[in-house]
């Protein structure tokens, strides 16, 4: 590795001259693209995982201080008013916001389908905001609500957030497995290319051996070509990833649920992770080609 990045001055006889040929087979021309797409998907998986983290934390933080009170549509108006009055008088609640029928309908539409009959008993929903400094016990509030009428219930979103968290956890496990599989694919692709280049350059390798080249010298030539190849591949992957992020940004910045996720386009931590992963993938590829070359070379007896 030490001489992999060796400085080559202008007077160097071997400047810009690869000792091995790798342009000749068709695979060589596709390999930067294959590795590029592989690296892109690995980066995308990383991006997806970071997104799922942010999704859960964003929802957590927005929902932690809002609960929803549900009132069965068949309740009498004075019981409705009693609920509202009780909520407004409870300490620890900063705002009580009953959603009107149309808003509730709009919220339910995606679940119940397009044509909602007007006389269907629609539950009334009341959004309540809580004071962070004055924590309220959901059990007590729930009991007081059902004391007014058993059809009044409190939803603290715990259940839902729990479900989402569990779902996201499974999603991340799946993503990690997929990522590892893709990295394995990348290593296999690099190994295959190195083997092909090795076969293609057999005569050159023999001649180099006869002129006193060490296996290390020869392996380094393969490392250099892999380095170049994966740098090209990573650039392709990064360009694809940035395009995805930019289009997500333009697509999602006006959607209230997504805005928090797509801005900023390049969050610091995520950017650092993507750069580190790119570097690691390049390093891994170079290592794989070195190992492949050395293993092949060890088989040559003379």
């Amino acid at each position: 590795m030490s001489t992999l990045f060796k400085r080559r001055d202008a007077d160097d006889i071997f400047r810009n001259t690869p000792i091995f040929l790798d342009e000749e087979h068709l695979l060589a021309r596709f390999v930067p693209w294959i590795t590029g797409v592989l690296i892109f998907v690995v980066l995308l998986v990383l991006f997806g995982m970071m997104l799922s983290y942010r999704l859960v934390t964003t929802w957590h933080s927005t929902m932690e201080y809002t609960w929803t009170v549900q009132i069965d549509g068949t309740l009498t108006p004075d019981k409705n008013d009693a609920v509202l009055k009780m909520l407004r008088e409870t300490g620890g609640i900063t705002s009580v916001n009953p959603l009107d029928k149309d808003t509730s309908l709009a919220l339910l539409k995606p679940w119940l389908g397009g044509d909602l009959s007007k006389d269907l008993p629609i539950p009334m929903l009341i959004d309540i905001r809580l004071d962070k400094t004055q924590p309220l016990d959901p059990e007590t509030l729930s009991k007081r609500l059902s004391a007014i009428d058993p059809h009044v219930t409190l939803d603290t979103h715990e259940q839902w957030l729990g479900d989402v968290s569990a779902l996201m956890k499974n999603f991340r496990v799946l993503m990690i497995a997929l990522g590892l599989l893709l990295i394995l694919g990348l290593v296999l692709a690099i190994t295959l290319v190195t083997r092909m280049n090795f076969a293609l350059n057999q005569t050159i390798i023999a001649t180099l051996h006869m002129t006193g080249a060490t296996d290390r010298f020869i392996a380094e030539e393969f490392e250099r070509s892999t380095l170049w190849l994966t740098v090209k591949g990573t650039s392709i992957g990064l360009i694809l990833l940035i395009s995805v992020k930019v289009s997500l940004y333009f697509f999602g910045r006006h959607e209230p649920m997504l805005a928090g996720l797509v801005t900023p386009i390049f969050p610091f931590f995520e950017t650092v992770c993507v750069i580190a992963l790119s570097g690691a993938l390049i390093g891994l590829s170079v290592w794989a080609s070195r190992q492949t070359a050395l293993r092949r070379l060890a088989k040559i007896v003379t």
Binding site: D11, F14, T211, G212, T214
Partner: peptide, 8 residues
């Protein structure tokens, strides 16, 4: 070159 002599 393969013996590591600087080509300059």
């Amino acid at each position: 070159h393969v013996a590591g002599v600087k080509s300059t």
